[in-house]
Amino acid sequence: MSKFNLTNYESYYIDYLEGNLSEEDRHAFELFLDQHPALQLEGELPVFTMNEDENLSHDFINQLRVFDEKEKVNENSIDGFLIASTEGILSTEKQQELQAYLLKNPSHLDSLGVYHQTKLTPDLEIRYPSKQGLRKGNTRRLIFGVVYGLAAVFVGVLLLFPSQETIYHQAIKQPVKSNMNNLIKKFKTTNTPQKEILFGGLQTPVTSTSKQITSKTELAQQPIVEDTNLLIVQQEFLTVEEPHQLQTISNTKEVNNTEYVAFLAMKSPIDPFFKLALKNLRDKVDFRYAKATETKQGGFYLKLWNFEVSRKVSATGDLAVN
């Protein structure tokens, strides 16, 4: 009985057409086809042979190769070695072997050049446009920076004036009805004992942060701005280092024995910081101080928003604070 039947003949058909069946099987298969003429292929049988020029291309095969450094440098492996050289992963020994091969076969030097040109270089002009938006912790850092900065100023001030004197806080609400003259007159006529607070700061001239006051007249002419505070301290208790300013004010007859100096004449040791703070925070921040000497009193004035603190240091150990 033939081993070919209608269920399995297809699997033998290709072998039959390609001549891969044994002689015995070929006869048996032809006999089977004679018995089933419907299965015979009409016309000329196709030829399933591959010509030389239909073989896979060298490039295609080359693509499938895997680079193995242990190989010898030859026509089949040269591309791999050229790329490895371009990549800089060849050992010294193999690099020398490749160079020797290229000396004998200089036509491959062009290929080496092309492989070098396949290396990409980034376009550094392409930049991520909003790097700032990716950053974290900016707001928190700014807030902490301001808080720590102010705290450092405050601590610094305390260290500058170490004493046992009391610090007084005063919320100043009394409005000023007239100008600076009134203020000064008021204080001049006040029968205030020495070593006592003369007044609470009320209003501040516009130019308070920068302009030097050189005379009482000029001081009196300063415009008044509401909601800012002024601290005038009796010169006896609190003075400044610049002698000419003190001299100008103290020579005024109106003042007589009671010499006054506006806190405007005090200097801020870190003026740029407070100017910057004033500019950026748009709020009332100020710091001034005058250093006490053997004969002159000193003190400081610090204002942070609605919080004010001032302190006087007396050369004789006396205390006067507002």
Binding site: D59, V66, I83, D110, V114, Y115, T118
Partner: peptide
């Protein structure tokens, strides 16, 4: 790592072929 090497080598060969095809290199 070996796959990386294979991919890089294949990519370089392809890029080289395209450059030659475009006659941008000798």
């Amino acid at each position: 790592e070996s796959q990386v090497k294979v991919y890089i080598f294949r990519a370089r060969k392809t890029l080289k072929s395209i450059l030659i095809e475009k006659e941008l290199v000798v």
